[in-house]
Amino acid sequence: MSKRIASLALAMGLGLVGAGLGATTASAQATLANVKQKGFLQCGANTGLAGFGVPDAQGNWSGFDVDYCRAIAAAIFGDPTKVRFTPLAAKDRFTALQSGEVDVLIRNTTVTMSRDTTLGLDFPAVNYYDGQGFMVRKKLGVASAKELNGASICTQQGTTTELNLADYFRGNNLKYEVVAFATSDETFKAYDTGRCDAFTTDASGLYSERLRASAPDDHIVLPEIISKEPLGPGVRQGDPQWADLVRWTHNALLIAEEFGVTKANVDQMVKSDNPEIKRLLGAEGSYGESIGLTKDWAVRMVKGVGNYGEIFERNIGEGSRLKIKRGLNALWNKGGIQFAAPIR
């Protein structure tokens, strides 16, 4: 028996050794220097969410979140293609970022207090304001989430969605049966097969997933939005330079939209007399150098992927297949809440 206990202890010990040594590689080091040295940005992406981050048949990634990865790569290298994507399921994403497997996580991730404070991560920006909703089959005749008493609901595990769902049904004194899956793919497939009455995720995700349904028009999105989901890029805590770079990437993309700097006109705009544009594009001041890049970082970025509005329209806006309205994500002076701190 003692032999057995000894071998048990040994096995557990070796496991711990592995875990302990694994954690060493995650020690905070200058991410920017590391990325420059590698020659590419390793970006944590969704396993496949149309409009936000999805690879095509040739393995080319596209989407709103993916373009944020490309914008950062363009700011650093002047080339938006110098990105490698790591598709991550919701439940694996934070471990991948913590362990240094990816440099930045841009994967429709909700910013919450516990994620910010206990995971050793920072969320420098919010690139998409969202909220959780429900999708059901039209033929059920359900018009409101409050009528979902007794329904079975498919959701992805390891998400804020899973927690909001529990809160909402408990708060409204409704019963439900949850069926949780590891990836969005498995979750939606189960709903589409008829395992669940309703499918829940962020509203943006609902529109995106509906495109994958065998008959998209048979499904409707219910009007209730049951939570606040500020989605944004995540970085490891303890590397302020890298967090600054990610934060100002987002701000610069917003400012570019605000002042009409687009992919097409950015070269002419460099010669603009507007001091705001001059500071953005590096004609005045040395703001790029303060985040470890060169003066013209924002020029490279806009040239690579366009401004915030262009990224939005191309991937998820009214011109795309998803047809999502700007809503909360319009600039503050156009009725939304996207408000960038100024470059000065």
Binding site: K91, F94, T95, Q98, S114, R115, T118, G158, T159
Partner: peptide, 10 residues
Amino acid sequence: GTVLNQTGQA
């Protein structure tokens, strides 16, 4: 799956 992800204590 869920607990690890909600607590982050891998």
